[in-house]
C-alpha cells in the first residue's frame, strides 16, 4: 500500500529545505538578470559552481575561516561576471546566452578534469569543508522539530542561515527595484537604445546587474552545497534550466516569485517523485522501473517549462496587466 503520510511529509520538508532556499536565491539572481534587466544568463550554474568551490577550496586546502572563504567565493564570481560581460554585454542578447552557458561548461569541465585533482577533487569533488562554519552553530546537538520538520542541529543551522540570506537578498532586490537604479535597469529591459539616448551608461548598468545577480547565484551555490559535498556534476546546464523553470513559474520580474516558485517547484516535484516511486513499488505501473520513475521528473520539468512560457508567461506572482502588452 502507498504510504501517503511519507509522501506528504517529504513534500512538506522540501518547503523549507536549504536546497529550496538555494534554488530560490539562484532564481532571484536570474530575476535580476532576466526579469528586470533582460539579460539572458544561461550560466547561473557557473556562478553557483564558483560559490561552492570558491568556498570549499580555501576552507579545505588553505584552512581559511568561513568569512574569508565567503569573500573568496564572491570575488571569484565578480571576476567571472567581468570576463563574461566585457565581451558580450555590447552584443545582442542571444550572444550572452551562448557565451554564459559555454563559460559555465568550461568551469564545470575544468573542475571535473583529473588534471587538478589535488585541488578540486575532480569528479569526486570535495567534502567536509563545513567545519569552520559549524563552530558557530548555535543549535544544541540533537534531532528536534515539529510535524514533518524534524532535523538535526546541523540541518537547522544551515536551514536558518539559508533563509536569512534569501530574505536579505529579497529585501536588497526590493530596495533596488523601487529606486531610480531599478528604473534604469527596467528601462534597459524594455529598450536599451532608448535608455542610452537618455544619457545612461547602459553597459555599466548591465555589468552591475550581471555582477549582482551572479553574486546571488554564488551565495546560492554555497547554500546548496552546505548540507552535502561539492561535486562538479551538480553544476550541469540542466541546473540552470531548472532555476529558469522556477523563475518562470514564480514570475520573472517579481521579487517573491522566485521564492514562491522554488517552494512550489520542490514541493510538487517531491510529491510527484514520491508518489510515482511508491506507486511503482506497489506495482501500480508495471511498465515502469524505479530508475525510469526518477527520469519522469525531468520530463515533467521540461514540459512544465514549455507550458508555463506559452500559457502563463507572467508566472504565479507576475502582473497580469503586463500580459496584454507582452510581445
Amino acid at each position: 500500500m502507498i504510504d501517503w503520510g511519507a509522501i506528504f511529509g517529504n513534500a512538506a520538508v522540501e518547503l523549507i529545505s536549504p536546497t529550496t532556499a538555494a534554488y530560490a536565491l539562484a532564481a532571484l539572481g536570474l530575476a535580476i538578470h532576466f526579469g528586470f534587466t533582460g539579460l539572458l544568463n544561461f550560466g547561473q550554474a557557473g556562478f553557483m559552481l564558483l560559490g561552492a568551490y570558491g568556498y570549499a577550496i580555501p576552507a579545505l586546502k588553505l584552512g581559511w575561516p568561513w568569512w574569508a572563504c565567503l569573500l573568496s567565493a564572491l570575488l571569484a564570481s565578480v571576476v567571472f561576471a567581468l570576463i563574461l560581460g566585457i565581451p558580450t554585454l555590447r552584443l545582442r542578447a542571444d550572444y550572452l546566452a551562448i557565451v554564459t552557458i559555454a563559460a559555465a561548461e568550461v568551469l564545470r569541465l575544468v573542475f571535473t578534469t583529473n588534471e587538478f585533482q589535488p585541488v578540486t577533487g575532480s569528479a569526486n569533488g570535495l567534502s567536509e569543508f563545513q567545519a569552520g562554519l559549524l563552530e558557530f552553530n548555535p543549535f544544541p546537538p540533537g534531532r528536534y522539530g515539529f510535524g514533518p520538520w524534524v532535523f538535526d542541529n546541523r540541518v537547522w543551522f544551515f536551514l536558518v542561515l539559508a533563509w536569512v540570506v534569501v530574505a536579505l537578498a529579497a529585501l536588497l532586490t526590493w530596495l533596488l527595484m523601487r529606486s531610480p537604479w531599478g528604473r534604469v535597469i527596467k528601462g534597459i529591459r524594455e529598450d536599451e537604445d532608448a535608455v542610452r539616448s537618455l544619457g545612461k551608461n547602459v553597459y555599466s548598468y548591465k555589468m552591475q546587474s550581471l555582477i549582482l545577480g551572479g553574486l546571488f547565484g554564488t551565495l546560492a551555490g554555497i547554500i546548496f552545497v552546505m548540507p552535502r559535498a561539492v561535486v562538479p556534476s551538480y553544476f550541469q546546464p540542466t541546473l540552470t534550466f531548472m532555476v529558469y523553470a522556477i523563475l518562470l513559474l514564480g514570475g520573472a520580474a517579481t521579487i517573491l516569485g522566485p521564492i514562491v516558485g522554488s517552494m512550489v517547484f520542490w514541493v510538487l516535484l517531491s510529491f510527484f517523485s514520491g508518489f510515482i516511486s511508491r506507486a511503482v513499488e506497489a506495482g501500480w505501473f508495471p511498465f515502469m522501473t524505479q530508475v525510469q520513475a526518477g527520469q519522469l521528473r525531468f520530463i515533467l520539468v521540461g514540459i512544465a517549462i514549455m507550458l508555463i512560457v506559452i500559457f502563463m508567461p507572467q508566472g504565479l506572482l507576475g502582473n497580469r496587466k503586463e500580459l496584454a502588452f507582452v510581445k
Binding site: D94, Y244, F298, I299, G302, I305, M306, V309
Partner: peptide, 10 residues
C-alpha cells in the same frame, strides 16, 4: 528559446 530548452529537457 526557453520553450526549446523545455522541449530539449523533456
Amino acid at each position: 528559446m526557453i520553450v526549446s530548452i523545455g522541449l530539449s529537457l523533456a
